[in-house]
């Protein structure tokens, strides 16, 4: 579903060129959950931006559902690939009701029956009709993130990219959102790509995960191997011992 082939990204400043990603290759089969773990500045977000067509790649390429990602991709690509942002406070328009927020992508992609789809999307993420006409500031953090997820799911994407989906939430709400995402993934057969610096969380959610550092993928292993500590890379070992 997602094919990342030897992607490199360079950022040019007046004085020098920074290589943010070095020859990254990853492959995520359809319907699986893939995690990307790494410390700040390891290139996680750059890779995500490249996957969404927000950042130009210097070499290599990303294919999602067989289609090469380019900058300003067509509308059909946008519908297939959706994203949930880290900060659920900032990613919802404060002047829009939940109804408008979920209805917006439906209108952009000209879906029929928006009324029914909005109610269904709310139900999918465990919100009731009473939340439909609230503004974001009338919702709790967990509810906002649910709305953000409902907004993505409303247009039935195949791939969802989640950028630290729980890091802005407190621990008990984190578990709720994680369980919600996992349930929806199984129900709808979504392909998920999750970025996080939280190793236990990613291990819990993902089938396979990649460890990144300094713009390079150090290791790609299955969660099972990680739990059984069958790791080879030194950095992964450090990360693993630090997270216990």
């Amino acid at each position: 579903m997602i094919e990342i082939e030897s992607v490199s990204v360079d950022f040019h400043t007046k004085l020098r060129t920074v290589r943010a990603l070095k020859d990254v290759s990853l492959s995520v089969p359809q319907g699986t959950v893939f995690g990307l773990v790494g410390e700040s500045g390891s290139g996680k977000t750059t890779l995500l931006r490249a996957m969404m067509g927000l950042t130009a790649v210097s070499s290599g390429g990303v294919k999602i559902a067989g289609e090469a990602v380019r900058q300003n991709p067509p509308l059909a690509f946008r519908r297939r690939v959706q994203m949930v942002m880290q900060d659920c406070y900032a990613s919802l328009n404060p002047a829009h009701t939940v109804d408008q927020i979920i209805g917006e992508p439906l209108a952009i992609h000209r879906f029929d029956n928006p009324e029914k789809r909005i109610l269904q999307a709310l139900k999918d993420v465990g919100l009731g009709p009473e939340h439909r006409f609230r503004f974001p500031h009338q919702l709790s953090g967990g509810q906002r993130q649910r709305v953000a997820i409902a907004r993505c799911l409303a247009i039935e994407p195949q791939v969802m990219l989640l950028d630290e989906p729980t890091s802005a939430l407190d621990v008990s709400i984190q578990a709720e959102i994680v369980n919600l995402v996992m349930r929806l993934q199984q129900q709808k057969g979504l392909t998920l790509f999750i970025i996080s610096h939280d190793l236990p969380l990613v291990t819990h959610m993902c089938d396979r995960l990649a460890i990144m550092r300094k713009g390079m993928v150090r290791e790609v292993i299955t969660s099972q191997d990680l739990i059984e500590r069958k790791v080879e890379d030194d950095y992964t070992k450090v990360l693993l011992s630090a997270s216990l």
């Binding site: 946008r78 959706q82 994203m83 990613s91 328009n93 917006e104 952009i108 992609h109 907004r151 247009i155």
Partner: peptide
């Protein structure tokens, strides 16, 4: 440059739509 405007771009909203639906009401 706020997240919700970027989100609208990622959803495929046209510039006109972003201006009138997302920025004008605010």
């Amino acid at each position: 440059n706020s997240d919700f405007v970027r989100m609208a771009q990622l959803q495929g909203a046209s510039t006109l739509r972003i201006l009138f639906n997302h920025i004008a009401p605010l």
